[in-house]
């Protein structure tokens, strides 16, 4: 292995900073024991970190030392009651060791079973909660979708109404239904026509409103009206002088029924 490369990899620094994985730690310790260069490098890194942390020293309050020693006097470090980290290859007879381990294992099993049951119950509750939250989320997502599509439609409509290229034609209610109202946006240059129904009596079954453009005194069908709000695109028309809406049989008529004209507006 290339020692210089290993040294310059940054692994040793991470080791000293305590940021390396257990696998890396083992590796570093193995190499440090084998290669004096690596051991020396580790030493230097430790010194640098030591210098840095020493610079950050803050003296603890003076009474703390006594407190600590009080605690420690109750707990001598050589006592057999204290958990001491031992290496596994002690000379203790195998039988004792294995019975000790079996007790430990049984305890561990009991504890882990307890945890499993506890977390099982908890997780069931959480599952129900998560389901509820998921439903709420879906509902929210749906309403956001609806709102943003409405919003897009409104912005679109607003852009047309604000566009100076479009002429806004108010269609006012006639004798048959005086408070009826509709609006046409017409662009003479590119001939596009939009209509919005503000107020019209609901059409009887089998009947539909039809929009007409009056071109040189003659009615030209612009298509059937949708009753939903917002601007709806109709057929293109050139040289219109007026727009009107009549009630016709569903699907529309080739000529308007002049007795059922609801709104009209001239340009």
């Amino acid at each position: 292995m290339n020692i210089q490369e290993y040294i310059s990899s940054g692994i040793l620094e991470s080791y000293v900073l305590g940021n390396s994985t257990p696998k890396e730690m083992k590796e570093v310790e193995k190499y440090a024991a084998t290669y004096p260069e690596i051991k020396a490098e580790l030493n230097e890194i430790e010194k640098a970190i030591q210098a840095y942390t020493t610079k950050h020293s803050i003296a603890p309050p003076t009474n703390l030392k006594d407190k600590i020693f009080e605690k420690i006097s109750d707990k001598p470090n050589s006592s057999a009651n204290e958990p001491i980290i031992r290496s596994l290859n002690t000379n203790t007879p195998l039988a004792t060791a294995s019975s000790y381990w079996s007790v430990a294992a049984t305890l561990l099993l009991l504890i882990s079973t307890g945890f499993a049951v506890y977390f099982g119950v908890k997780s069931n509750k959480l599952d129900g909660y998560m389901d509820d939250m998921a439903k709420v989320n879906i509902a929210l997502a749906d309403s956001i979708k609806a709102i943003s599509s409405n919003m897009a439609q409104m912005q679109n409509d607003l852009a047309i109404m604000k566009d100076p290229m479009y002429k806004i034609v108010d269609l006012k209610g006639l004798k048959i239904a005086p408070d009826s109202k509709a609006m046409v946006c017409w662009c003479p240059t590119d001939k596009t026509v939009y209509v919005e129904v503000d107020k019209l009596p609901a059409p009887p079954k089998g009947m539909q409103y039809q929009l007409w453009a009056i071109v040189d005194g003659k009615p030209v069908s612009e298509g059937m009206l949708a009753m939903s709000s917002g601007l709806h695109k109709m057929s293109d028309v050139e040289n219109a002088q007026a727009f009107a809406v009549t009630l016709e049989k569903a699907g529309g008529s080739p000529t308007p029924n002049m007795n059922a004209m609801y709104v009209m507006g001239t340009i």
Partner: peptide, 18 residues
């Protein structure tokens, strides 16, 4: 920390660092 040091000093291995 001092209680830990006191209790676990036996696990300190100087070959692994200062």
């Amino acid at each position: 920390v001092f209680v830990k040091i006191w209790r676990n000093i036996s696990s300190y291995d100087k070959s692994k660092g200062k």
